[in-house]
């Protein structure tokens, strides 16, 4: 009952935030409202028992997507132009689509109904089989990495392709080491806090990476948290210094290496006489094999995600400073 109340209030707040985002013109303000929107939706995901999704949303929404949007806004203008004419046609399209969709929901099973078709098909099997065959408490991880390993391989490839696409579109230029803004040198609090938090964030990323079998987390989330740590460092100490820790060349290798680790696990299991990505062959004991396989592919996912996000960030920020000042 309490959960219902929190769920309904959070949904109401989300709706209000959504309307405000549409109405506002200042893009900086909109970016910040988007950050709030993502915070609220992450709380909603926790209420709805989707802790892994909440962790993803926490890692991406609160950090990366806001930062990338800000980088975009910094490259373009802050103010959105007023529309030239009344948006009557879009409004009509939207209301009509919405009405049709709402009509469609009338036949749907109610929220929380245990007899809904979605709960009767494969989900009980996953829940039932996971403890014995996979031995991993987090069923989401076992579905993601083992039962549906092919899908996740597809996802990783998509992320890899996105990274390659950004690389092709934005290009890249290495920065000199001391190319940081002199204003930032004066921000002592920021620099000290960053020094304090940077190792903690990296440590926590490793925790999320390797504890993903037992609690919420996994490669995707860990990769994002890892990249966020480096972005924080870049914000406080300048991009040039981060590139001394992780140079651009390393990132390109990492981006490929993650996908290759994933595929390599699949090929290894084929060489041992199983099917592609059949982890139980990997060790003498099937459950140990599953553990090993899941750990390795999660590692691959984490490496690729972290590298791609850092590449996107490098691409945006190195471009930001190339622009001649008279353009803005």
């Amino acid at each position: 009952m309490e959960e219902h109340l929190i769920n309904n209030v959070l949904l109401g707040l989300l709706m209000m935030t959504g309307f405000a985002i549409v109405r506002m013109r200042s893009l900086l303000a909109v970016t910040m409202l988007t950050s709030i929107y993502s915070l609220l939706s992450a709380s909603l995901f926790v209420v709805l028992d989707a802790v892994d999704v909440a962790l993803t949303e926490a890692a991406i929404g609160a950090g990366i997507s806001t930062i990338l949007m800000l980088a975009t806004v910094a490259l373009t203008t802050d103010e959105e132009k007023a529309p030239r004419h009344k948006p009557l046609l879009p409004l009509f399209v939207v209301v009509a689509t919405g009405a049709a969709l709402i009509y469609g929901t009338l036949d749907m099973p109610h929220y929380g109904d245990p007899m809904a078709p979605i709960h009767l098909h494969v989900a009980p099997t996953y829940l039932h089989v996971t403890p014995e065959e996979i031995g991993v408490p987090n069923v989401v991880t076992s579905v993601l990495a083992s039962f549906r390993g092919y899908d996740t391989l597809g996802e990783v490839t998509v992320i890899f392709t996105a990274g390659a696409g950004v690389l092709a579109l934005l290009g890249y230029r290495t920065r000199r080491r001391n190319s940081q803004n002199p204003e930032i040198r004066k921000m002592v609090v920021l620099r000290v806090i960053t020094k304090l938090f940077f190792p903690l964030i990296l440590l926590f990323a490793l925790y999320v990476q390797f504890h993903g079998d037992y609690g919420p987390g996994g490669g995707f989330q860990a990769g994002v948290i890892f990249a966020t740590g480096f972005i924080l460092y870049a914000l406080a100490y300048g991009l040039g210094n981060v590139q001394r820790i992780i140079p651009y060349r390393t990132l390109r290798i990492m981006m490929v290496a993650g996908v290759l680790i994933y595929i390599g696990v699949g090929i290894e299991s084929m060489l041992l006489g199983g099917k592609f990505l059949e982890y139980r062959i990997l060790a003498d004991d099937p459950v140990t094999g599953q553990h090993l396989g899941i750990m390795l592919i999660e590692l691959g996912v984490g490496i690729t995600v972290a590298a791609v996000i850092l590449i996107i960030y490098y691409g945006f920020v190195s471009r930001q400073h190339q622009e001649p000042p008279e353009d803005t």
């Binding site: 930032i184 964030i201 948290i225």
Partner: peptide, 23 residues
């Protein structure tokens, strides 16, 4: 055990604030 999520927020939610102020 879902405090993990709260911890992620504690660690990284301020990064975007810093980014806003830097822009």
């Amino acid at each position: 055990e879902f405090l993990d999520i709260a911890l992620v927020y504690v660690l990284i939610s301020f990064v975007s604030t810093i980014a806003v102020l830097r822009v």
